[in-house]
């Protein structure tokens, strides 16, 4: 409807607004980078802390098993030594069982923290997707407005040309010439501004997507890790609790061994996970930050050069180019080739 009437969408754009919008986006992106950085650091700390807990559970479990082996060993030396060490071992064993329960509970707390953290990461990912959606909306609006400005530039040019050929009193001609020249220059500036606005949206889209993808990756890794660790720790918990009933029964130790094997798998997953999050912290984020800084410089230069050289020939070329590009996009869209 607006398109037919050649109306602009949204508020009339000014250079000041464009500048403010650029700064707002840049600041939001910087905040997002800091937020992702904090999330990564927390994720790494949580991963390490969970890893340490699992590793302690594993080592205490192995100690328990070693004591069991020593207790049941049938060598002559073991038979001779056993009466002198039995009490000491029984005491040591009690401590291990108690410690296993305490350790299990500590790992349980880390798991709750990780679950809570996974939700925080998911929320950040959603907020970043919202930013990407907002940029797409702004891009579509700038595109529409650029097309409107291009049409108006060409209309104003045609009107200006017609003034020279129409048979009109000189005073009327002068008034119209002034009017159309004013319109032409105003719309030429609009054309430039919407062009810059479009460019800004395009420039911000890539890092916004990259940040969103990084956080999505973070969430995916964390969720998978938490699910696996929860399963393993729950299984260990059931068996560890069983120790309270039958602390001397070899069957419990055999069952505990199964938990320890599962813990080994969880430990391997933890190591991989910590390595991956270290990579995110060490490489992905610094690269993204450097890219953002470079883009910021380019953007400032582009905006300055675009707006300081607005002349009629250039506006004409831009208007024609904008309409050609728009037509090309429409054809592409009809053929189903664009997103």
């Amino acid at each position: 409807m607006n398109e037919k009437r050649g109306e602009y969408l949204g508020e009339q754009l000014t250079q000041m607004q464009l500048q403010r919008e650029r700064e707002r986006r840049r600041s939001r992106q910087a905040d997002a980078v800091h937020q992702v950085d904090r999330l990564m650091q927390t994720q790494q700390a949580l991963g390490e802390s969970l890893g340490n807990g699992l590793s302690s559970l594993q080592s205490k479990g192995q100690m328990l098993q070693r004591l069991e082996v020593e207790r049941t060993e049938g060598s002559l030396l073991a038979t001779l030594v056993r009466p002198f060490t039995a009490n000491r071992q029984a005491l040591a064993r009690r401590s291990v069982a108690e410690e296993l329960i305490a350790l299990y509970e500590r790992v349980g707390v880390r798991l709750r923290e990780a679950t809570h953290f996974a939700d925080q990461v998911k929320l950040t990912a959603l907020e970043m997707q919202q930013e990407v959606d907002g940029l797409h909306r702004a891009l579509a609006e700038a595109l529409h407005n650029q097309r409107t400005a291009a049409k108006r530039v060409l209309e104003a040019e045609r009107a200006l040309d017609s003034v020279e050929v129409d048979e009109l009193p000189e005073a009327v001609k002068a008034r119209r010439r002034d009017r159309y020249t004013f319109d032409l220059r105003t719309e030429a500036v609009n054309l430039e501004l919407y062009g810059v606005s479009m460019e800004q949206c395009r420039v911000h889209l890539a890092p916004a997507r990259a940040l969103r993808d990084t956080v999505l990756q973070l969430h995916e890794d964390m969720s998978k890790y938490v699910i696996n660790a929860t399963h393993t720790v729950n299984a260990a918990g059931r068996r560890i609790q069983g120790l309270g009933v039958m602390a001397d029964a070899p069957t419990v130790v055999a069952e505990l061994q199964e938990s320890l094997d599962e813990l080994s798998e969880a430990m391997a997953a933890t190591e991989k996970y910590i390595e991956a999050s270290q990579l995110l912290v060490d490489e992905v984020l610094p690269k993204l930050t450097a890219k953002l800084d470079a883009q910021d410089q380019d953007e400032v230069q582009f905006m300055a050069s675009s707006l300081e050289t607005v002349d009629r020939a250039r506006s004409h070329r831009m208007a024609e180019r904008a309409l050609r590009q728009e037509a090309a996009r429409e054809i592409e869209s009809l053929l189903g080739g664009s997103d």
Binding site: Y104, E105, G108, V109, L111, R112, E113, H116, N234, G237, R238, Q241
Partner: peptide
């Protein structure tokens, strides 16, 4: 209720107190 279920509430309580 099994120990593992009850222990989750205790762990969540520790998280609640830390936040």
């Amino acid at each position: 209720p099994a120990y593992t279920w009850m222990a989750r509430a205790v762990a969540e309580q520790e998280l609640a107190r830390s936040l």
